[in-house]
Simulated assay, not measured.
Amino acid sequence: MNYRNIDFEKISKSEQQLQSLSLIGINYDKRLKKMLLEEYKKPSEVNDVMLNQFEGESGINFPIEYKKFLLTTNGGSPSKD
């Protein structure tokens, strides 16, 4: 996904991706690895309800532009490129 000329990749990882990362020295603990795999198999989706609920529970109000960013990129993380 591209947002303002920044490429975003999904935070989830497949088993193959985790193995490739392990080969270059990037390893995750069992709990995080399980979460990444689960997210890969059944991706969650950021929506207005989730953002509003988080704002209400945390007492934080996101700027509108940041909410748009989160919704557009599904809370993604930028790729290394």
Rank of each mutant, 00 (worst) to 15 (best):
Q53C: 15
K80M: 12
Q17H: 02
Q53Y: 12
D29V: 08
S77A: 14
K10P: 05
G75E: 01
M50K: 09
F69C: 03
S77I: 14
F69Y: 11
I60G: 00
N2Q: 12
S12T: 02
P78F: 02
F54V: 03
N2I: 09
E57W: 13
N47C: 07
G56H: 15
I26C: 04
D7C: 05
K13F: 01
N5Y: 02
G56N: 15
N5G: 01
N27M: 03
K68S: 15
P63I: 10
S79D: 07
S58P: 05
L36W: 07
D48V: 13
L37G: 03
N2R: 13
L18P: 04
D29C: 08
E9K: 09
E45A: 11
L51Y: 01
G25Q: 08
L32R: 03
D48Y: 10
M50E: 05
R31E: 00
E55W: 02
I11V: 06
M35F: 08
M35A: 12
M1G: 10
E9A: 07
Q19M: 00
L51T: 09
R31L: 07
T73Q: 01
I6R: 06
V49L: 13
S77R: 13
P43R: 09
K10L: 05
T72V: 03
V46F: 02
S12R: 06
S79K: 12
K42T: 15
N47H: 06
F8Q: 09
I64N: 15
N47V: 10
Q19G: 08
S79C: 12
E55C: 04
M1T: 10
S79I: 07
N47W: 04
M35Q: 11
K67I: 11
K10M: 00
K42N: 14
N61R: 14
N27Q: 02
L18V: 01
I6D: 00
L21A: 04
S79P: 00
N61V: 14
G56W: 14
N61S: 11
V46M: 11
S20M: 08
I24Y: 06
K67V: 12
Y28Q: 04
D29G: 05
L70S: 06
K41N: 15
R31K: 10
I60V: 13
I64G: 11
K68W: 13
L23S: 01
S14C: 07
K34H: 02
F62W: 05
I24L: 01
E39A: 11
F54R: 05
I24A: 04
V46I: 11
S58H: 05
L32C: 07
Y66E: 12
I60S: 06
G59I: 06
F54H: 07
N52S: 13
L32Q: 08
K13Y: 06
P78H: 00
S14V: 04
L37Y: 06
L32F: 09
K34P: 07
K80I: 14
Q19D: 04
L36I: 06
Y66S: 14
K68N: 13
